[in-house]
C-alpha cells in the first residue's frame, strides 16, 4: 500500500486558495470609505453566492478595487485573486479576464467548484460598464467579450460559435460530449441549444 500521507491532502483546496480564503485581499470594509468610480453587483442566491465590486479608474487603468461576497471559499478566493490581478490593468485588459485565468492563478479548483469562480469577473465587467456609462464614455467592450454560457464547466458563447462554424458541433449532444457543457447543474442547456440554432443559421449550416 502507498504511504498514507500521499493520499491525505492538507486541505480540500490548494494552498493559494487557502491563503486567499483566510486573508482575502481588498475587502470593501465600511471604515475604508471607498468611493468607487464604477460599481457592479451580480449573483444568484439560489447558487448560494452574490458579488459586489467597486473600482477606481485613473488614466484608463484600474487604480484600486474593493469587493464583497456572500459566497463559499472558492468564491472568496477567486475574487480576492481577481482583485489582485486587475490592479494596474487597462480597462480592456481587465474586461478580458476570464474565470479560467483566475482559476489558473489559484492553482486550480475542483471541477464542481468552477461555477463559484465566475462571479468575480462578471461583477468586475459590470463595474467597468457602470464606470463608462456614468462618465458618458462609449463602451467598446460590451457585446465583444465572450459570455459564459455554462458556468459549471466554463464554456462561453464564442467557443460554441467556433465549434458550430467549423462543423465540430451540430447539436446539443455533441456540444455536451465535446466540452462538458450542461453536465454540471444543467441549467444552461436550453440557452446552449438556442445558441447552436442561432449560429447554425448564421453560418448556413
Amino acid at each position: 500500500m502507498s504511504d498514507f500521507k500521499s493520499f491525505m491532502t492538507d486541505w480540500v483546496y490548494t494552498d493559494t486558495v487557502k491563503d486567499h480564503f483566510i486573508n482575502p485581499r481588498n475587502i470593501w470594509r465600511k471604515e475604508d470609505e471607498f468611493e468607487p468610480d464604477g460599481f457592479g453587483e451580480v449573483g444568484s442566491l439560489a447558487c448560494g453566492d452574490q458579488m459586489r465590486v467597486g473600482i477606481k479608474v485613473a488614466d484608463g487603468k484600474i487604480s484600486d478595487i474593493r469587493w464583497l461576497t456572500y459566497g463559499c471559499a472558492s468564491a472568496i478566493a477567486s475574487t480576492s485573486m481577481m482583485s489582485e490581478m486587475v490592479k494596474g490593468m487597462t480597462l480592456a485588459e481587465a474586461y478580458a479576464i476570464t474565470p479560467a485565468m483566475i482559476t489558473n492563478k489559484l492553482g486550480g479548483l475542483p471541477e464542481h467548484k468552477f461555477h463559484c469562480s465566475v462571479l468575480g469577473d462578471k461583477a468586475l465587467r459590470a463595474a467597468i460598464d457602470d464606470y463608462l456609462e456614468s462618465t458618458g464614455q462609449e463602451n467598446p467592450f460590451k457585446g465583444h467579450v465572450a459570455k459564459i454560457v455554462c458556468e459549471c464547466k466554463g464554456v462561453n458563447d464564442q467557443q460554441i460559435e467556433e465549434l458550430v462554424k467549423t462543423d465540430k458541433v451540430a447539436n446539443l449532444q455533441q456540444l455536451m460530449e465535446l466540452t462538458g457543457l450542461g453536465t454540471g447543474c444543467g441549467k444552461c442547456k436550453a440557452e446552449a441549444e438556442r445558441l447552436i440554432a442561432e449560429f447554425r443559421h448564421l453560418y448556413g449550416k
Binding site: 483566510i22 447558487c47 448560494g48 453566492d49 459566497g71 463559499c72 471559499a73 472558492s74 468564491a75 475542483p110 464542481h112 467548484k113 461555477h115 463559484c116 459549471c152 454540471g184 447543474c185
Partner: peptide
Amino acid sequence: DLKGVEVSTGSACATGSLEP
C-alpha cells in the same frame, strides 16, 4: 475546520450539487 472543529453544512457549495 482550520480551527480544528469538524461539522457539516446544508449549503449547496459543500455538496457540489448546486442545490442546498
